[in-house]
Simulated assay, not measured.
Amino acid sequence: MSNPTPLKDLKELKAALQLAIGLELSTIPVYLTGLYSIKEGHNTETAQTIRSVVMEEMLHMTLAANVLNALGEVPSVEPVGFKGKHLHPIPSYPLTNPLVSGIGTLQLLPLSPHAVQSYVTIEHPLHGAAKVTEIPLGTCLYRTIGEFYGVILDALHDTKICKNGDFKHHNQVPDTQYYGGAGHVVEVKDRESAVKAIQTIIDEGEGLDPDKLGKQAKTVTDNDRLRNGWQMYSHYARFRELQTGRRFRSTQKAGEEPQGAMVLVDYSAVHPALHVPRNGDTEGGSESAALIEFDLAYTELVDDLYLAFSDGRKPVSYTFHNEKEVVEQKPALPLAVHGMHALKKMAVALMRTPNPASPAHTLCPRFSYVEEGDRDKLRQIVTELRKENR
């Protein structure tokens, strides 16, 4: 029997929520790398599936942030002290998660059977194990993502850890600012809405109860439908369909082998991108510049998301035809959404660019967050590399 380490007080609950935001963020680049590696016009069903999961991971980040804000804490990219560990919420790849042992090492890979297997492992309630006790704990605190969210949920129910008066309707991201995925943003104002927000993360994603494997794979609730009525279901079931090349029939259970209509996945219609960490940068002049520019753009996007989670606004300057500059404070979340579209274009361009250090491969986005003190230095390096390669 596994006994997850409970949260002891409000401070630990807030730290756990900071790490939950980062945990959801850690899966997004993994899935985006597979998505952006698909050659244009190919694997449309696969792309739709991966994109739908990414949008819900964004929703889960938002839900965890809303709970944290309601408890009076601001979402932050800074390291978190949690149960004697010093943990950074912003992932760096390859990532061996120090919080949850079962998900293994997260890598940035182009779409392949191995990549899809990793998606299934992440989203499986027991990360591929038959029993939770079969998952080595190692130096981590929790065996599964479900265990981690379970202790958060227990703490939210516990009036000794958080009193009713600790919840305030403060700095909430509203549902009107969430784009394109299933589910709805829960604005947290009390204990009940906080529990609902975390339960939504559990039901849709990686915290899925193992018992759900014995229930219908295509179980649908109101929160599992797109706004146009399109049916969604758990991330695990969606990725199992890609892995097996078959849809689940409506009568099938999530733990069964899908036996419905075929899902054609063409792994040959994928850019052969090779991930090289920032400290292993050997790609070449203009190629290195492009990779660094992507890192800086990704860093700005992450900062914008965290600013949005705290109801922040960002100064945006406009220069008119009379050369007069006007600065306006804009909501950060719409700017982050625009940033995601720009980042996609940069990622696709990288994956079409041959890697000078490995001719059989193309470049791969690194999704490497740049600390504030290093940003100016990297911008200068980009400028110098661009000059050298004119």
Rank of each mutant, 00 (worst) to 15 (best):
V132L: 05
C364L: 11
A254P: 04
A64Y: 08
G165W: 00
V54H: 04
L363W: 02
G205M: 08
R386F: 01
A289N: 05
Y233F: 15
F248L: 00
A182C: 08
A64P: 13
R390Y: 04
A336I: 02
H271P: 00
K344R: 13
F167H: 08
H361C: 14
Y179W: 09
H341I: 14
Y36D: 12
M346Y: 05
Q243C: 06
A237M: 11
V382Q: 02
D281C: 13
V173G: 07
L335D: 02
G255F: 01
N164L: 14
S310G: 15
V270H: 03
K324F: 10
D224C: 03
D175R: 02
K39E: 09
R143E: 05
L385K: 11
V382D: 05
A347I: 03
T383L: 09
L71S: 11
F148I: 06
Y93K: 05
K8N: 10
Y178I: 01
L109W: 01
G312V: 11
S112Q: 07
E300A: 15
Q48Y: 03
T49I: 15
K215N: 14
V302Y: 07
Y142N: 06
D175V: 06
V276S: 13
M340R: 01
G229A: 07
A16V: 00
G138A: 08
V382C: 04
D190N: 15
N69R: 09
S234F: 00
P6D: 12
G165N: 11
I381R: 15
C140V: 03
V116T: 05
F167S: 12
N223K: 13
V263C: 04
E384L: 12
A297L: 13
L111M: 06
A64M: 09
H127N: 15
L153W: 02
S76Y: 06
S286V: 15
T383H: 09
V265F: 02
A360V: 02
L126M: 08
K11R: 06
P136S: 14
V53I: 15
